[in-house]
Amino acid sequence: MTPIKTFAAAALLAAGLAPAAQAQVQSFSTPPQGSVWNTMASVISGEARKSAGMRLVVQPYGGNAQMMQAVNEALAEFSLNDVNDVITAVEGSGDYDSPMPNLRIVARVNPFPVGLYVKESSGLTSVADLEGRSVPSGWDAFPIARPHITAILAAGGIGWDDVDQVPVPELIRGSDDMASGRVDSAFFAVGGPKVAEVDASVGGVRFLSIDANDETLEKIREVRPAFYFSEVTPAPVRVGVGEPMMFVTWDNVLVAGAHVSEEQVQALLTVLFEQREAIGAAYPPLLALNLETAFKQFPGVEYHPGAVAFFEDRGVEMTSDE
């Protein structure tokens, strides 16, 4: 038995589930508790239990590769992830040693703009201004940040060779190092609570602007094929965004295994869109759920047939960025 199978079996036994009950329980594989995807899965699962009687539980794993492996090997039914990471998992490229052919897209959930931010007092205003300055690198405990920062730098017209690379292990440490002055910039998603914390501790932060045009779009899609640009406007929760700005963006997607039945997929999709207001009240970023934009085409990945039937039954056509 592989380590991940042993872990999953132990988790079920620890929950005291009899074999008959195990067959009825569905699980969401996520990163550790406190992560965005764990929070989102917890909210969605809670609503599915409440409004539809679904027996959905959240099962945290050590990182993206483990949670995708759980779905691919039928140890979990659902997960949430950056669609670019799903694409690389299916391919067996990037941080994935072998292909995971059993992953299926269920729905686009919400856009996720990301950027590099700095202290307001730094005087830096654009990513291009980081030339010769320090940028967090390494990311051994959060490798998904590497391609994201690569794309942000490219959208600013520079690359890793143009900056001073300072190793950081993961997101929270990277922001703490920027606050302390160890590194000039930090990487985070727009609206992240950590950004607000740093803003309060250093007297103000700002996200750095990028050049969002056809040339830089081509460059960021060389890094990850489903990156795109989106405009973000100021709002109290969007600390560091003082004016309308363009950001490198990915889509969070709901993922299912090929082993999951069409009925199970359609039941969860029904909860997502019929209970959108309740889900969004529990976690406001999920108010971005939109039936009309949830069936989006992505390169290199398939939709689950249950999802295809769900959207077709509701007259929703597939969209794309093109």
Rank of each mutant, 00 (worst) to 15 (best):
F112K: 05
Q33P: 00
V57H: 02
Q22M: 14
P147M: 05
A179V: 05
T2M: 06
L17E: 15
A70F: 02
A309C: 04
L56N: 08
P285M: 11
E218F: 05
P167E: 14
V265K: 00
A189N: 12
I4Q: 13
F7S: 12
E231L: 09
Q66R: 15
R146K: 14
S230T: 15
H148S: 12
P285H: 03
S126G: 07
E91K: 14
E292K: 15
F7D: 13
T150Y: 03
T270A: 09
E317T: 11
V308K: 01
P305M: 10
W139D: 02
V265Q: 03
F28A: 05
D140S: 15
V232Q: 02
A10G: 12
W160S: 08
S35G: 10
P31F: 09
M245N: 01
P305D: 09
A41M: 04
V43T: 10
G191S: 04
G315H: 09
V114I: 13
N102P: 07
I105L: 15
S93W: 05
A151N: 07
T216D: 07
G138C: 03
P113S: 06
G62W: 07
N81H: 11
F227C: 03
A154S: 12
V83N: 03
K219A: 12
M68T: 04
L171P: 00
S261L: 12
N81W: 04
S42F: 01
N64G: 14
G92P: 02
K50W: 00
E262I: 06
A18M: 12
V25Q: 06
F247V: 07
G300V: 07
L124N: 04
F247R: 10
E317A: 11
A9C: 07
P60Q: 09
E292S: 15
V58H: 05
R173Y: 12
D95L: 12
A70K: 08
S79I: 01
I149H: 02
Q66N: 14
S79K: 07
V25P: 05
Y228A: 10
N72H: 09
A128I: 02
N110F: 14
Q69R: 13
A74R: 15
F273L: 06
Y303H: 06
S126I: 01
G257E: 01
V190Q: 01
L80T: 03
M40C: 07
K194H: 11
L153C: 06
F78R: 02
A186D: 11
A14N: 13
G156S: 08
E91V: 02
M54I: 04
I87A: 08
T233D: 09
F310L: 10
S122V: 00
V255Y: 04
L289F: 01
P236C: 07
E197R: 14
L75M: 15
L269Q: 08
P225Q: 07
V36H: 07
E218P: 01
E222F: 06
V241C: 10
A141K: 08
V83E: 04
S230C: 03
V109G: 01
S185L: 02
Q264Y: 09
A18Q: 13
A14T: 13
A294G: 02
A15Y: 05
L56S: 08
A70D: 06
P143R: 12
R104C: 06
R238N: 15
A294L: 03
G280Y: 00
S137Y: 10
F28D: 00
F229S: 01
N252F: 13
V301F: 09
V135C: 05
N110K: 13
L268M: 10
A15Q: 13
H148R: 11
S134Y: 06
W160M: 03
L269M: 12
W139Y: 11
